[in-house]
Design a protein around this nucleic acid. Structure first.
Lengths: 244, 244
DNA sequence: GTATGAAACTAACGGCTGTTTGTTTCTATC
DNA sequence: GATAGAAACAAACAGCCGTTAGTTTCATAC
């Protein structure tokens, strides 16, 4: 029984976005293949035309996300030279990635422990590469006197986790634009690193500069107020996000 | 069939620590009652002498952790007046709690989504109380000019998540003592808030002051080096942690 | 020393899970 | 227009899940 108009490549795309959606919502343990199949619009058994197992599906998605982040980091940060500029770009890249691809990132963050020991280690290996690169920026800044931290390893962890955690509260209808968030988090990051308010391309305490349409004032009104709209996607960053 | 020497209160305690242990390790979806029962040393059906359902067990543990944190916050922070002191104490309390009770905290952080909508909301309500209190400290500091942030709500989120995330990497055999970690994280926190290095009881950049035995130098050697020992538990903080 | 409740057991239930097998229908190629 | 592979289906399997029912043994109070 093949459906009229059925197409393998499209079904695979649907499968991936549905999986990301459901994994983010329910977690690996609570998501079952029948609900995934239903979301894709096929039978559970038909999933096996596209995946080897539930476990391999999770691994595939985790791997993809991790590698995408690494690639974007390299593309974004390579140009800058000064540690301060590199840090600024890192924050922009990391935060942007985790906002635009927040479901994938959330799955990676929460569901990695459901991976087989072997699969887990494979992902961890890539992640260590990434962490090391970030740490190198911190260390370089410390060496030049641009940053000042008591312990660069802890500082790197703290920085990464602070930024990564946007996935936990960010909602696209929120109060602030992506540019505003980058601005705010850059300020927090540089503060953490005791970077002072030096030169470089970072606008630090000033509120505008990145948004093309001109900056709106940043206020402290609660998240629940939905008076301001947020740009939906950031075309510079990776493509198919799994909204739903 | 009642076991010789069996005791309800003790079994309940074992059940709770075993549950925390297993939930932290596998997650709610992947943990099943038979493995929990095995760890406790009884049959799965006997668990129902102590719990109503798996769901209620999770709720109970989440609720307990949340309330314990709130109580400790109130006890620790109430004495201080100056926003800077209050912040210092908050960091100490929050970080300490999440290190000492890291398994409970990890369950709360990761498994809340497995709660029934109603149960979830009950926990969220308590959490909101807590977050508001932290936010109040930030706002008070901003009002007095002690802190300087672009957006106090985001700053509060970022701060909380940075601190909470110790549960993700902390291992008791690690490089640094609890006191050293509090010191490091306080410095990062005040940096985030652009608190400068003013007076108050905070020793800021200095490395000693909290440890009774006298401070060891804080270096940047990798976590994997286990040359330094860590204090196992902090008696001031809540009692029965679930080590395993 | 008997009665009572606490604390455990064994056995089973209905339902759900990931996965396999074998089959059917659509699409594209020659 | 026959053929071959792609893309779906339906049915089932073996095992596990949370939970219930009924039973047995231990500890204690009188």
């Amino acid at each position: 029984m093949r459906k009229p108009g059925s197409n393998g490549a499209e079904t695979l795309r649907n499968l991936r976005t549905a999986a990301i959606q459901l994994l983010a919502e329910h977690g690996y343990g609570a998501m079952n293949l029948r609900m995934l199949a239903k979301k894709v619009g096929i039978q559970a058994s038909s999933l096996y035309n596209y995946i080897d197992s539930k476990q391999q599906l999770l691994f595939l998605l985790c791997e993809e996300t991790t590698e995408n982040l690494l690639v974007e980091f390299d593309q974004t940060v390579k140009a800058a030279d000064d540690p301060r500029d590199r840090m600024r770009r890192f924050v922009e890249c990391h935060l942007g990635f985790h906002i635009v691809n927040r479901k994938q990132a959330s799955v990676l963050q929460m569901e990695m422990r459901s991976l087989t020991a072997k699969n887990f280690e494979a992902i961890s290996k890539i992640q260590r590469l990434y962490t090391d690169k970030v740490r190198a920026i911190v260390d370089a800044g410390v060496a030049v006197g641009a940053f000042q931290v008591e312990d660069s390893e802890i500082a790197t962890f703290a920085l990464l986790q602070m930024l990564t955690a946007v996935t936990r509260w960010y909602r696209p209808q929120g109060r602030l634009t992506l540019e505003q968030l980058v601005e705010i988090y850059s300020d927090l990051s540089f503060g953490m690193l005791h970077a002072g308010r030096g030169a470089s391309e970072s606008p630090a305490i000033r509120t505008s500069a990145t948004s093309a349409k001109g900056a709106r004032a940043i206020t402290s009104s609660p998240v629940s107020s939905v008076t301001r709209r947020q740009r939906r996607s950031e075309p510079a960053l990776s493509a198919d996000s799994a909204e739903g």
